[in-house]
Design a protein around this nucleic acid. Structure first.
Lengths: 142, 142
DNA sequence: CTATTTACTTGCAAATTACAAGTAAATGCT
DNA sequence: AGCATTTACTTGTAATTTGCAAGTAAATAG
């Protein structure tokens, strides 16, 4: 059985939304990029309370789409480590842009508002800094 | 009956995704911002083929969330005009960032790839230019 | 005055998400 | 060695969302 990927159109927006256009994927990516989470258990503890089966499903999709990789923890056979690929790291500017919007129009916690204010003043430097760090981690391939 | 909005967390990302984190909302916004569509019928014709009930539902949500307004067409009683608010226009940088990502990682049509390449070279100017135009339209309140 | 356009609503099937519980291998503790 | 716990899930079922086809009702067009 060939698994044909049905794209709704050849617009980059719709194709992207076919991958991460849901209520959970970007939150998972946020926790991986921003909060440095690495395991299923860590992700499960996210503030928003994701269901176990939804997390498991999304991780499979994100891996299949090449945004993350799954590898065995060194020294432990029962633990897996989810890591971002370059493709996954590149999602970060999108997340940041949404957080910027949210800081203006939603009632977010003051801490986030402050971070946003600070980072907006030098948007590119901020975004690129975090991405560079993630990329370095990725290349260190530990 | 008070309609309590249940937010999953006080993070701007999750709250934003509660509003437009689905497969359709941003495509509707794209057509309004980018392709200058204004009516239900125009939106229904989008390339991705949205179902009539889904479009109707999403328009209600987007209006309730203050991203768009609905007004009667001047000179026609059976037509409605959907227009972006400032809050809606501010979604544009998010859409653009996703299109940028899509241009790198999805198989988008060449035309879009070219536009992205051009606009990436001067990202801020490009995004702000479109937003300024939309804002001008909004303020002309015709 | 009939046909078409415009903006939907309705009904029902299919897919996705939510919630609770269970499982199975690995590890930690005594 | 043996039992409890951790880790990473799977399974089942209910609720919600989406997809598709059809219908409707007011307004306009010929």
């Amino acid at each position: 059985m060939v698994d044909i990927k049905k794209t709704r159109s050849s617009c980059g927006l719709s194709q992207s939304l076919d991958i991460f256009g849901d209520k959970w994927s970007l939150l998972i990516m946020r926790d991986l990029v921003y909060f440095g989470k690495e395991t299923y258990g860590d992700l499960l503890k996210m503030d928003e309370g994701i269901a176990t089966n939804v997390l498991a499903d999304k991780l499979v999709v994100l891996e299949k789409e090449g945004l993350i990789t799954k590898e065995i923890f060194v020294g432990s056979k029962s633990k897996f480590k989810y890591k971002l690929t370059q493709k996954g790291i590149d999602i970060y500017p999108i997340i940041m842009e949404i957080i910027f919007w949210g800081a203006t129009y939603c009632e977010v916690y003051p801490e986030q508002k402050a971070i946003v204010k600070m980072s907006k003043e030098n948007r590119d430097a901020f975004v690129q800094d975090i991405m560079k760090n993630k990329l370095k981690e990725l290349k260190e391939k530990n």
